[in-house]
């Protein structure tokens, strides 16, 4: 270019080419670029790991949902099953229970059978009463039971004697027996 000639636009724009960073800049540029590239390495997981992560997340959420549904279903099944409540009773009050029990005691059926079944208690209860009639008469008292004056009550006493444990037997009296139980 002749220095006496005016520069044109192209000549001026060539100045832009001279705008260049120094070596220190490029050293830093390379270092930063390397760090950023390494960061992308760390952040970027392989596709199969991403797939595995997605699958495991899906499996976890699905299994949790299944477990929840199973628990809810079990709870519903237990609540809806027709098992009777053993704590409820048809007997409404304590007085009613006592009345029924007294009626039971005076019946012949009650005294003759070991187990008495009452209709009102049939659903929930089985009342077992141990009879004292049968076997108690054949007790072998040995030294503890002494028979005295069998058949001759008038000679010794005029008062009737009852078996001390036989509280339920009201109608039949023992007149000849004195029983001592130790």
């Amino acid at each position: 270019m002749n220095i006496n000639k005016h520069p044109n636009l192209e000549d001026l724009l060539k100045v832009k080419k001279a705008e260049q960073p120094d070596d220190v800049f490029w050293e830093k540029f390379d270092r930063d670029l390397q760090e950023k590239t390494l960061q992308t390495f760390i952040e970027q997981e392989p596709w199969y790991r991403n797939l595995a992560n997605k699958f495991s997340q899906f499996a976890l959420s699905t299994s949790m949902a299944c477990a929840l549904i199973f628990l809810m279903g079990t709870a519903l099944y237990i609540n809806l099953s027709p098992e009777p409540d053993i704590l409820t009773s048809d007997v409404n009050s304590q007085e009613e229970s006592l009345m029924i029990f007294e009626e039971m005691m005076i019946t012949e059926e009650f005294s003759d059978y070991a187990v008495v079944v009452n209709d009102t208690l049939e659903k929930n209860y089985a009342v077992e009463v141990i009879s004292i009639q049968g076997d108690s008469e054949t007790y072998d008292f040995e030294a503890d039971a002494i028979s005295v004056a069998i058949g001759d009550t008038v000679d010794y006493s005029d008062a009737p004697v009852y078996a001390s444990s036989d509280t339920f037997r009201i109608s039949k009296q023992y007149t000849q027996l004195a029983s001592f139980a130790f």
Binding site: I3, K14, E19
Partner: peptide, 20 residues
């Protein structure tokens, strides 16, 4: 924020013209 200019890369003709 401008970059520094490397004077050696600028045409000497342009520089001489403008300095003159």
């Amino acid at each position: 924020n401008y970059e520094t200019i490397d004077e050696t890369l600028v045409s000497s003709d342009i520089l001489e013209y403008f300095t003159a």
